[in-house]
């Protein structure tokens, strides 16, 4: 257990505006952890698995994932992270997307998503939801990486 190591927030979100609004509202909730933003699946996965400061190499993380990405679908990323032999399989994933399709939601939970949040179009609700997510993040316990780090 490494209690001093801060939890990194990794956000994979193709819409810059959404990313900005999410970040603003998380900050407003008092979360000051580092937020790493990636606008596509490829660079996001690259960071998660291969970057020296990425979660696979270095410390706990929490992933905010959008399902509609330009290069691959969010469920594919979700599937890879939560796969049986993935070093990141215990990393909490919050799916934050515009899709509110029941089947899609079910699929995400089946794949191992921890929280599924539909982005409300109404901004007040949106801001509210993100702020509550921030509050949630401030109390959530994130596992270390015993397998990855030995």
């Amino acid at each position: 257990m490494n209690k001093h190591q801060a939890v990194n927030i990794i956000m994979i979100e193709d819409d810059e505006g959404h990313a900005r609004l999410i970040e603003k509202n998380i900050r407003r909730a008092g979360i000051s952890n580092d937020i790493h933003h990636f606008t596509n699946g490829t660079s996001g996965l690259e960071y998660l698995y291969n970057h020296p400061s990425g979660p696979a190499q270095n410390g706990p993380a929490l992933i905010l994932l959008d399902l509609n990405l330009p290069d691959m679908s969010g469920t594919e990323i979700l599937g890879r992270i939560k796969a049986e032999n993935s070093p990141l399989k215990r990393t909490p994933i919050v799916v934050l997307t515009t899709t509110d399709d029941k089947i899609e939601i079910q699929r995400c939970y089946d794949l191992g998503c921890n929280v599924y949040i539909t982005k409300p179009v109404n901004y007040d609700s949106f801001a509210d939801a993100i702020r509550q997510l921030g509050l949630f993040l401030s109390v959530i316990q994130v596992p270390d990486f015993p397998e990855a780090n030995g």
Binding site: D15, G17, K119, A127
Partner: peptide, 14 residues
């Protein structure tokens, strides 16, 4: 259409 709308509404609120 929803995605850009979230932005328009969000930044309008900002």
């Amino acid at each position: 259409l929803r995605s850009p709308l979230v932005n328009v509404m969000g930044f309008t609120a900002e």
